[in-house]
Amino acid sequence: MHEESNVPSVFKAIAFLSLAILLVPMAVVVLAGLNSGDYLTFPPQGLSLRWIKAFLTSPTFLSAYGVSFVVALGATLVSTLFGTMAAVFLSRSSSGSVPVLRGFFMLPIVLPGVVLGLALYVFFVSSGVGLARTMPGLLIGHILVTCPFVIATVTASLVGFDRSLEEAARSLGAGPVTAFRLVTLKIIAPAISAGSIFAFIVSFGQFELTLFLTAPDLQTLPSAMYTSMRYKFEPTAAAAGIFAIALVVISMVVTSRLVNLKKIFER
């Protein structure tokens, strides 16, 4: 703790203010979802489960939650498989194309979501493949933005991987695939889980990309919330938000047990 006391108090004050900026809006969503009035005002009116109930019986929000869940699950499965395969290649190959490829796979998260969504929509419409505003089309968009997270997470864990472990297995008679499955895969399994959790959350919270990819009967949770906020501003959206916040916080706690968070996010 002696190091922490080295932080100037002005810094501590601003740091706590920053934490407040990050966390207060989340707390407000929870309060708004549990508030008994129509709109969270000061002073608050008291607690009730009215909006939670409204959420659990709302056809719009429930089906949106379902769509988001299905899309996130599908995108996570595909991204985890394709992303892990690509990460193994990227960390093992000594080819000169590796740095280029690595940058290439990160592009979808660099491109503005609105632009990527628009590009996909225009592509789906003009090529006549019939994917515009359909579930598979939505899924494809989500795979593009979740795959980079799996690739980054798994590559990070493979960088420090000791190849001699795998070679030991091979020298004991295991085939390349068996050695990979029994040794490497076991060791990078936590990173794969972490990557797939990231993929799931990123997909679940994706809004700007889906702007042109959803349809009135195919709304994801963020797009249903957005519509409700622009036209009605009902606390049902906040109640839906409570479930999403719980999902994210639990996933982050689980991820922090699986991998060293800093290794992935610190540059």
Partner: peptide
């Protein structure tokens, strides 16, 4: 990681 729309809901209430 939390959905931006949810955080904006909180900000709009504030």
């Amino acid at each position: 990681q939390l959905d931006m729309v949810i955080r904006l809901f909180g900000l709009m209430v504030l």
